[in-house]
């Protein structure tokens, strides 16, 4: 009997001492933390993507609670969610529009021929250490998926040599933008689905030689636009999304089909055109 009691007492004693140690420590080293931080953290989407510029959701929640920063937004949360959080903190919310990433290139293997037999590491940045671009157009999407690796939401996939973005899954966190060595990923409003899928600033003839769907800077879109929303600069068209109305006139006139309609509205829009 004693063989059981003695070890029991010894271990029990240890447990008691440790427990009182913990108790003292928890009282002595107690740090006050605003309980709202935990609550705001609960309300955030919890993607921990870092798209807000902070080290995860908790850090962002802490920032929101401690600072009167009305510009700080979670790119993943919808406007309503963000409003709810700010209302909880007793502040006015600036309603943000949902943004999505879009690729400024349509240089698929069919449109823009591969120019070499690249055999290095399968990463866009690694490829740029060996060559400017694996394709005929030196501005083109390399298609080795550095952005895919950066995306936390499974919104990006490589198809036929370029990255294809799922607008529904894209949360607009913007992490893919700096991940592209060719600087081809740009944010646009979710509802503005017309994009110039080209980033080539070479002269028209050179650009056309490199890729069948390159923007040649012909100015037809600029003339066709009734809203002053598209401008050609340095042989490349650029859409001003503040003014764009999704009318699709530029898409119709583009001789090289370098202006395209993104997202699931494609079919509807094309039929309307």
């Amino acid at each position: 009997m004693l063989e059981i009691i003695i070890p029991g007492l010894i271990l029990g004693g240890f447990a008691l001492i440790s427990a009182s140690g913990l108790l003292v420590a928890s009282k002595k080293f107690y740090v006050f933390e605003d309980p709202r931080i935990a609550e705001v953290n609960e309300m955030l989407p919890g993607a921990n993507c870092g798209g807000c510029g902070f080290a995860g959701c908790l850090a962002f929640a802490e920032h929101l609670v401690k600072n009167e920063d009305t510009d700080a937004i979670c790119p993943v949360a919808s406007g309503e969610e963000m409003q709810k959080i700010l209302a909880f903190l007793g502040r006015e919310a600036a309603v943000g529009e949902k943004m999505v990433a879009s690729l400024m290139c349509n240089g698929t293997h069919d449109n823009c021929k591969s120019q070499m037999d690249y055999a290095g590491i399968e990463d866009c940045w690694a490829a740029t250490l060996v060559t400017d671009s694996t394709k005929a157009c030196s501005f083109a999407c390399i298609g080795l998926g550095s952005c895919v690796k950066a995306c936390n939401f499974d919104a990006m996939h490589i198809e036929n040599g370029i990255v294809v973005i799922d607008d529904e899954k894209c949360t607009g966190c913007g992490l893919c933008v700096p991940a592209c060595p060719k600087n081809l990923l740009h944010m646009r409003p979710y509802k503005k689905y017309i994009t110039v899928a080209c980033y080539n600033t070479d002269r028209g003839a050179d650009a056309r030689k490199a890729c069948t769907v390159a923007c040649i800077g012909c100015l037809k879109c600029e003339k066709a636009c009734n809203y002053d929303a598209i401008h050609v600069n340095n042989f490349l068209a650029k859409i001003d999304y503040q003014k764009c109305t999704n009318c699709g006139d530029c898409v119709t006139v583009c001789p090289t089909n370098s202006i395209i309609i993104r997202g699931q509205e494609v079919h509807v829009a094309v039929e309307n055109v």
Partner: peptide, 10 residues
Amino acid sequence: VKNRLLFMDS
């Protein structure tokens, strides 16, 4: 790739 292209590697 139909046309044989030059090999590129580090």
